[in-house]
Design a protein around this nucleic acid. Structure first.
Lengths: 252, 252
DNA sequence: TCAACACATTTTCTCGAGATTTTTATATTT
DNA sequence: AAATATAAAAATCTCGAGAAAATGTGTTGA
């Protein structure tokens, strides 16, 4: 793989701030490349090889990897180095159900407490997402835009929720499910009805209809579960080319 | 502060496994000392000083600190080093409410899916906790035992919940709230009625009364909120002896 | 042919030293 | 006296080299 694929310095940063330290920068790039599947699940992450690709020292890269461990995107095995977290249908079901729990509660609070400015941001994010959806068939690069705007839309929906912890957990879970979605949608196109779902989600939210909005959101999230369920099985099995000589280590 | 206070190598490890690497070990000891208040909120964590106390290299200590950042027990400020995460009443309210959401859902699933073996573990953990409560007034060291067994009791309660993610979030939130509780209970004794609450929680759980158990658990968790609310204000204000020359950095 | 042991290579983990950046202290100017 | 600017000091961040561990290979024996 080329360095250009790994170093996406030109792309917009994930969060509003730009990295202030090399560790932060390497962490962001690594995280992005794992979520996007550049580093497939189960891949061994050798520090000696990656330090060249990411152009940082060994110690710096280790710190970035440690950060990804607590995000559950990378697993550290005792004294046997790092590895991209494996995937499984069971794990994705867990992620999805937990995400429903967290995100519906966040939406409930957001609808209850959001002000007019928040409503405006919801409508704006939905509009931007809709525009990206129109371009999906034409341009190839539109996929990246759509992914980004979809994330922003879901984030803005719950941005009026005052709980920093709920938002924190939502971010983690969204990132996790995004990894699965990218894998399942690698070949499959984005289904037609997601736009209708987003439309309904936007309408019920702005109308402050908590129950309806949460119901739509729940079904919307659960729908991605089906997409992964119908994914070719080799994605889930071949995804862990682990050379587990003796797998006595437990999965924390 | 003495090295003995920092290096609690003789104490039982937090999890079943013992640390396989120096980073892991330093991470556990640091986490414990932060939760217990040995490193008070807002304290600057200078690598050069801590490397002697924890007897590890600078790079190793940095990795351990990075791990604590994603646990939200330590904050990293750009290029200005690390600092123990500050505390505030607002933050603790957030932690408590989110913990209610997570932990009641976990308990619901646990009650629905737990087998006889799980029931046995619940009763055993409750018994161990009760014994520790009896010893609270007599021995001074009983406090540590009680804290540990209280944690185990709450963990066992939801151990039949099949969601790894919910359990993960519960651990993080429990650790956070433990830090606040230790601060508020530094002088104040543990109130009398917690035993009755635990008893009721145990009974309703084993009786598989989901609604009653969740109600008790909710009130039990919310009670700790009052304890912190009635905490002397200097704990929350003096807790951040930060030398913020220009606090333009945002709180992530 | 298969299993077990020992050796060699690779990789991880750890430590100490150098380059930037931030903070503190001092001196100068208005 | 207050404020700015300069200079010294401390701390952080980063990199490369050495020790410990694990994986893979080859050999020996049944």
């Amino acid at each position: 793989m080329s360095d250009a694929a790994l170093n996406n310095t030109t792309a917009a940063p994930d969060t509003g701030m730009e990295p202030k330290t090399l560790v932060e920068g390497a962490y962001r790039r690594l995280r992005r490349n794992i979520v996007e599947g550049v580093h497939p699940p189960g891949e061994k992450l050798r520090v000696e090889h990656l330090k060249e690709q990411y152009d940082v020292g060994a110690g710096t890269l280790r710190e970035a990897l440690q950060l990804l461990v607590t995000d559950a995107l990378v697993v550290a095995q005792g004294q046997r180095g790092f590895r991209v977290a494996p995937i499984s249908l069971k794990d994705f079901e867990d992620i999805t159900r937990t995400r429903v729990l967290i995100e519906t509660e966040a939406l409930r609070q957001s609808i209850a407490l959001g002000d007019d400015d928040w409503e405006g941001r919801v409508l704006a994010a939905f509009h931007r997402l809709s525009r990206a959806e129109e371009r999906l068939d034409d341009e190839a690069s539109a996929r990246e835009d759509w992914e980004e705007r979809n994330r922003v839309f879901h984030e803005v929906l719950i941005s009026a929720c005052p709980s920093r912890w709920i938002q924190h957990f939502q971010q983690i879970l969204y990132r996790q499910s995004e990894r699965y979605r990218r894998l399942s949608l690698f070949r499959n196109p984005i289904p037609r009805d997601v736009h209708a779902e987003h439309q309904l989600l936007c309408d019920t939210t702005v109308a402050r209809d908590s129950e309806a909005a949460c119901k739509v959101l729940t079904e919307h999230i659960l729908r991605t579960l089906d997409a992964v369920r119908h994914m070719p099985t080799e994605f889930l099995t071949a995804a862990a080319p682990v050379s587990l000589a003796r797998q006595k280590a437990d999965q924390a």
